[in-house]
Design a protein around this nucleic acid. Sequence first.
DNA 1: TCACCATATATTTTATACAATTAAATTGCA
DNA 2: TGCAATTTAATTGTATAAAATATATGGTGA
Lengths: 139, 139
Amino acid sequence: MDPLKLENQLCFPLYAAARGVVKLYTPLLDKIGLTYTQYVTMMLLWEHRQLSVKQLGERLYLDSGTLTPLLKKLEAQGLVTRRRASEDERSLIVTLTDAGGALRERALGIPQALGQCIQLSNGEAGTLYTLLYKLLGQM
Amino acid sequence: MDPLKLENQLCFPLYAAARGVVKLYTPLLDKIGLTYTQYVTMMLLWEHRQLSVKQLGERLYLDSGTLTPLLKKLEAQGLVTRRRASEDERSLIVTLTDAGGALRERALGIPQALGQCIQLSNGEAGTLYTLLYKLLGQM
DNA sequence: TCACCATATATTTTATACAATTAAATTGCA
DNA sequence: TGCAATTTAATTGTATAAAATATATGGTGA
C-alpha cells in the first residue's frame, strides 16, 4: 500500500469534492449575482444582520486577505455596508442592507436545488457532516 | 430548520475542511518546494511517469486553465518535461525527469506527518473516503 | 480535397485563498 | 502617564480555479 499513491489519499477526494460542490453551486448562484464565498458570507449576515470582519473570519475560516476585497464587492453591490465600530475603531462592522436582506428571498430555492444534485441518504449526509466537523475541529 | 443557515449546510464544512487540510500540508510541502496542487500532480507522475495534460486533468478534476501554468512551473523547476505527442500534436505529454523522480524520496515522510495532524480512526477515515468518492462520482 | 466538426491545449479574465507585511487603534503595565 | 505589546484590518505577492475564448491539430463525409 503506497502512501504516495493518489488513490490512497484521504485528503485528495476532500479537495476535489469541495471544488466539485462549489461548481454545482455556480450556475444557481449566478442567478442572484453571488459567488460561493459571497454566498456563505451572506448566509451569516442573513442570520446575524451585523458582524465584524473578525467574526466573519472566525466563522468562515477566512482571513482579511480574502474577506476585505470580497466585502468591498458586496458593498459595491449595495448588499452590505462597512463602517468602523465607534467603541473600537480597529473593528470593521459589516451590516446587511435592505437590499441584502431582500436577496435572501431569491436564495430560498438554492439549498433544495443543490440537494437534488447530491444523492446521499439522510444517514450518509449526517455521517459526512459529523466527520467533516470533526476534521475541522482538529485544525 | 432554516436551510439557509450556515450550520445546516453540508457543503460548507466540506469547503472549509478542504482548505484546512491544504493548509496543514503547506509547511510540509514548502520543504520540498511544492504546493498542494503540484504535489497531487507529482503523485500521479511518480506512479505513471508519463501522462498527457488531458489524463492529468481527468484524474485531478482540473482543466488546462489550472494545469498549464502549474506544469510550466514544474518544468521550470526541472521536475518534468513537456512535449507534444508525435502521434497527435494536440496532445501534450508530461514526463517525470530524474530530478522529479528523486523528489519522491523527500516526500516519503509527508503522508505520515499529515496523518498525525488528523485524528480519525481507521473506520472513520474509511467511511469518509467512501462518502467523498460517492459525492465525486455524482459530479 | 476541402469544408467542417471535434479534440486538446493555451490564454484571458475574474475571484478566491493565504502568507507576510504594514498600519492604526487599543490595552496593559511599569 | 508613557510606551511596548496586542489586536484588527488592509495591502502585497503568489498560486490556484474556473468560465470563456482562441488556436492548432485531427478526423470525416460529400
